[in-house]
């Protein structure tokens, strides 16, 4: 654990913990809405932002936030229209994003497969003090927004039409979710990488909901699992010299397997215990 005395390791760990907490807090709404893969798509788009940043000599994190936000808002507008062609439009956007990113990163002076791999799969070495400030600030903003607007976002994701009839600012809330998705994807790319960002939003939620009964308890459990997986992922990858993003995601998936087994065992025990009661009154009564 003497690795933790190294400043870059401390920064990597701090960044991972922030993301581990924020990503599932956002991801639960995406899962509830059946948009589990949206983070992955936005990650593809963000790569174009990274490429633009590297090419123009600006901060790749900053330009990735901008491009990913534009992409996420675009996706939301396509989704809002509810056209069947939306699916195809999303595919074009995502592949355009990753192709543009690979092209632009290749053109930049800081090229080489090494640089691209850092953004795609995360790296422990790349979190600068300035990055950590950005990650900390944006991560806190995402977390606060997801917690403060929890009742409204829950209502929206649970039943959008009902939210509309309740007079909630549905479009604003949808854009808020789109923007926070873009921000979360971008700040997480340093640690877990753009291709695995989505896993950190979704897998802790999937793991938590195997054993929880309500939305708030699922959210808190998912955040705890995300925090644990991200922190342990950084430490294990530093000790074992494995890829941090992959390590984190595999740890989260391990938790999922454990909770899925625990959930199904509990379910079976309950069913075993419960009497076979008819929940509805019988249609006919036979008198002996």
């Amino acid at each position: 654990m003497e690795l933790l005395s190294l400043p870059f390791m401390q920064r990597a760990l701090a960044a991972a913990l922030i993301i581990g907490l924020a990503a599932p807090a956002l991801g639960i709404y995406l899962v509830q809405r059946r948009l589990s893969l949206i983070g992955d798509g936005i990650g593809h788009v963000a790569l174009t932002g990274v490429g633009l940043g590297l090419l123009t000599g600006n901060s790749p994190v900053f330009s990735a936030v901008l491009v990913a936000t534009v992409g996420a808002v675009g996706v939301e507008l396509i989704r809002e229209r509810g056209r069947t062609s939306g699916d195809l439009a999303l595919a074009m956007l995502f592949y355009g994003g990753i192709a543009g990113g690979v092209l632009l990163v290749g053109l930049s002076e800081d090229s080489g497969s090494n640089s691209l791999m850092q953004y795609l799969f995360g790296s422990l070495l790349t979190t600068s003090p300035a990055d950590l400030m950005v990650i900390g600030g944006l991560g806190a903003a995402v977390l606060i927004a997801m917690l403060v607007f929890r009742p409204a976002l829950f209502a929206l994701c649970n039943d959008e039409e009902y939210a509309r009839v309740s007079g909630l600012p549905v479009r604003t809330l949808n854009i808020l979710l789109a923007v926070t998705t873009a921000v979360t994807v971008t700040i997480a790319m340093r640690t877990v990488g753009l291709l695995l960002v989505s896993a950190l939003m979704v897998v802790p939620v999937a793991a938590a909901q195997q054993v929880t009964r309500g939305f708030v308890s699922t959210m808190l459990a998912a955040m705890a699992i995300g925090l644990g997986a991200a922190g342990a992922g950084v430490l294990v990858s530093a000790e074992a010299d494995t890829a941090p993003g992959a390590t984190t995601v595999l740890l989260a998936l391990t938790v999922f397997v454990v909770t899925a087994i625990a959930g199904s065992v509990r379910h079976r025990l309950r069913r075993h215990k419960a009497h076979p009661v008819a929940s509805e009154p019988p249609d006919v009564v036979l008198h002996a």
Binding site: I28, A155, G167, L168, T212
Partner: peptide
């Protein structure tokens, strides 16, 4: 959706308006 929600949580949405 797969994400569990309790009866109380769903009914609480009715208070938002």
């Amino acid at each position: 959706s797969g994400v569990p929600a309790t009866v109380g949580e769903v009914v609480a949405s009715g208070r938002l308006a």
